[in-house]
Design a binder for these strands. Structure first.
Length: 686
DNA sequence: TAAGTCACG
DNA sequence: ACGTACGTGACTTAT
């Protein structure tokens, strides 16, 4: 059914070559061998575990052992992890060439090496490398300090990088890491192209349990029963935090070598779990692992910002904000902080005695947009506050922020695409978030004018049309809905025609608007109450629309019910490609939370399949760009949209080929549709 | 650090 | 009776 994307040959080769079964058996043998020592190793609480480095820090080691000893009831896997935890540790600090040579020999011969970098910053593009850790066998790891600033002897950074380069860039040397997208950036900062990325424990955890935390401390605890040294324990936190380059080598080694060690052990635990499930294996190998590389490229590309334009907009918006502030204080009869919901509430509901429309979760009177909109029907002040709020938002979040985030040399902003944050499989964008740039209002869209193409390029935007509704038609296999898409109908118009029982060409804009709200509601697992609230109609009327919809689209009704049942039975739901979303609360006794889980269960297969599809598209498009050696660069992904810098002479080619690539990453039971926009800024291209 | 709000798909 | 449309990130105030 699915046209699988071209497997990356390198990855496939690595997976086949390093099946790990033999090696796993060896490791298991070692674990079993340790089993006889289990009782005594559990008694280790209070006495330090053997370590070459860090012997002096009994605190950390005893805390680790203590955590093991206090483990509650043990499952089989818990026993395994206890044994994992009891493997003796040998962490070395590599500060001379002899040891470096020995480790290089080790990793050259290893079938798989865990790699981790320590740096000066979480900002991968700005970070400087401080050290590298490596592990090839559980319990054995090294830390190679490169830039610690406390006078302790260490190897020269450039010498080590030069010596390691052939291995780091060697595609045949299989590597595993925790979030290797980050480490790839770090090495790229020094002109080194990390290759041979075979596994990533962050993505392994994400594919297995997207709803749980994926940081190394949590993973070690959850899967290995081990308590790890936390970053704060080494560097402190808040204002007192020091850079990793200030940390003493011995402590740095304890921490950093452990990261590589834990990464390797986590992989040995997680990878078999993924292999055991074909759907998860597909998502991991063919979607997440290849997507990681594409995301790294996009992050490095960045997008060009017109800071001068934003500065000009800042002048205008700033002036308008001052005017509004004056008017608002005038209407309120006193000055107050308009940015404080609490103070707004005091003015509106206290001083002016306006009616309270709704309350916040904590019970305070709400002053959100919906409330102010309602009050604006009868009073002048709320409308002004709304104007002020929206402009203040534009000002602080975009107009002021984006220029400060731009690289002063290139004028480009580089977002971080977080691949393991959204439980549904979507990406998340942060620092800055470029997935929530305003578009819905006239004022907001002006921000998009400041996103501009590179010199000699146009911005090209390609977005999937109605992707989630198409996926709903596919999953539900609803004849009527599939037929509407097959016929190329305007789906909201078609829906209106069905629920109002009128011919397609007699649907008016109001009816279409209703149908659109209903279609969105379906994707979100709405109730009659929710629909009524959204449309401003009686609940009974909303219920009638829903009933009519399900009457005309019975496949969709069955899908909703089927999904609720499947979620309850299995505790998870799946996308078309086999991605899982676990819903621990689906069987719970907390009614509202269970219903929330049911709505998430209905939504996740659609949102998640859309996420799968666009990731496959990104992989296919990037592969094509590279194969054809084009200069077009992929810049952004906004859930159903991709944005590119396209040189003028490649525009026609992209216009012709992109929709084709994006629509054919999979063959669903409905056609996929991609529309293209081109312009001298994101607003024009959209 | 939490709460409230609002930007996006 | 009870809450009530899914998924995100960022900013500001207030504690």
């Amino acid at each position: 059914m699915l046209a699988k994307p071209e497997d990356a040959p390198l990855l496939r080769e690595l997976f086949e070559r390093y099946a790990f079964k033999t090696w796993l058996r060896d490791v298991e043998k070692k674990l079993t061998g340790d089993r006889s020592d289990e009782a005594s190793s559990l008694d280790l609480a209070g006495s330090p575990l053997p370590q070459e480095v860090g012997r002096g820090d009994a605190n950390l080691t005893s805390r680790q052992a203590g955590a093991i000893a206090s483990s509650p009831t043990k499952t089989l896997s818990q026993e395994t992890t206890d044994i994992q935890a009891s493997i003796s540790k040998h962490y070395e600090c590599v500060v001379n060439e002899e040891d470096l040579d020995r480790w290089i020999k080790k990793i050259e011969q290893a079938s798989l090496t865990a790699v981790d970098t320590e740096t000066t910053s979480l900002d991968a593009l700005a970070a400087e490398i401080v050290g590298i850790s490596l592990a090839v066998t559980p319990g054995e790891a090294c830390y190679i300090p490169l830039a610690h600033r406390n006078g302790e002897a260490q190897l020269n950074r450039d010498l080590v990088l030069t010596r390691l380069r052939p291995w780091l860039e060697g595609a045949a040397h299989a590597k595993v890491g925790q979030n290797l997208k980050y480490d790839t950036h770090i090495f790229a900062n020094y002109g080194i192209t990390l290759q041979g990325i075979a596994f990533d424990t962050l993505l392994e955890s994400y594919v297995l349990e997207s709803h749980l935390p994926h940081n190394m401390d949590s993973l070690a605890e959850r899967h290995l029963g081990m308590k790890t040294i936390r970053y704060e324990e080494v560097c402190g936190k808040g204002a007192h935090q020091i850079g990793f380059d200030q940390v003493d080598l011995q402590i740095a080694t304890d921490y950093a070598a452990e990261d590589a060690d834990i990464t390797l052990r986590l992989h040995l635990e997680l990878w078999p779990q993924i292999q055991a499930n074909p759907g998860l294996l597909y998502v991991y190998q063919n979607i997440e692992m290849p997507a990681m590389r594409v995301l790294g490229i996009m992050e490095r590309n960045g997008i060009r910002i017109d800071s001068a334009l934003l500065a000009k907009q800042g002048q205008q918006v700033g002036k308008r904000l001052l005017e509004l502030e004056g008017e608002i204080h005038q209407l309120a009869g006193q000055p107050f902080n308009i940015q404080s919901p609490k103070q707004i509430a005091e003015i509106l509901f206290g001083k002016l005695e306006l009616p309270v429309v709704k309350k916040t979760p904590s019970g305070a009177p709400s002053t959100d947009e919906e409330v102010l909109q309602k009050l604006a029907e009868d009073y002048p002040l709320p409308a002004r506050i709304l104007d002020y709020r929206s402009l203040a938002k534009l000002m602080s979040t975009y107009i002021e922020k984006l220029p400060r985030m731009a690289d002063p040399k290139t004028g480009r902003v580089h977002t971080n695409f977080s691949q393991a944050t959204a439980v549904t499989g979507r990406l998340a964008s942060s620092d800055p978030n470029l997935q929530n740039i305003p578009v819905r209002t006239e004022e907001g869209r002006r921000i998009r004018e400041a996103f501009i193409p590179a010199e000699g390029c146009k911005l090209l935007s390609a977005d999937y049309s109605q992707i989630e509704l198409r996926i709903m038609a596919h999953i539900a296999e609803d004849e009527n809905l599939m037929a509407a898409f097959a016929a190329g109908k305007d789906v909201h118009q078609a829906t209106a025609s069905e629920i109002f029982g009128i011919p397609l060409d007699q649907v008016n804009s109001e009816q279409r608007r209703y149908a659109k709200v209903i279609n969105f509601g379906l994707i979100y697992g709405m109730s009659a109450f929710g629909l009524a609230g959204n449309l401003g109609i009686e609940r009974s009327a909303a219920q009638n629309y829903i009933a009519k919809y399900f009457d005309r689209y019975p496949g969709v009704a069955q899908y909703m019910e089927r999904t609720r049942l499947a979620a309850r039975e299995h505790g998870y739901v799946e996308t078309v490609f086999g991605r899982r979303l676990w819903l621990p609360e689906i069987k719970g006794s907390n009614g509202p939370r269970r219903q929330g889980a049911e709505r998430a269960a209905i939504n996740a297969p659609m949102q998640g399949t859309a996420a799968d599809l666009i990731k496959l598209a990104m992989i296919a498009v990037e592969a094509w760009l590279e194969k054809e050696q084009l200069k077009t660069r992929m810049l952004l992904q906004v859930h159903d949209e991709l944005v590119f810098d396209v040189p003028i002479d490649e525009i026609e080619l992209l216009k012709a080929k992109l929709p084709d690539l994006m629509c054919n990453v999979a063959q669903l039971k409905v056609p996929l549709l991609v529309s293209i926009g081109i312009g001298d800024n994101w607003e024009e291209a959209h």
